[in-house]
Amino acid sequence: MAKVIIPTPLRKFTHNQGTINTDGGTIKENIVSLAEQFPDLKKHIFDENGDIRKFIRIYLGDEDINVLDKENTKVLPDSVVSIIPAIAGGKN
């Protein structure tokens, strides 16, 4: 079991809960576990192919999983996983 930190913009899909306990031995398994608990969250995290959206970044502790083993990164029972929405924009 790990803890997943839900970013503020997505908390309306987790009944305003900021931290959710999830199951699984990898990042992917824990994120799937999260989506199973909160189906409304699914489309905001996964694309139509079931992959994590490119606008979503996942951190394990303070490290981007892209510099670890990506979705296959191992998750321990005391791990803290953060979902981070990409923040960007500009005038044109």
Partner: peptide, 11 residues
């Protein structure tokens, strides 16, 4: 902008 909209998140 269109770019702002494309990148916008809920809430």
């Amino acid at each position: 902008s269109e770019h702002d909209l494309k990148q916008a998140v809920p809430f």
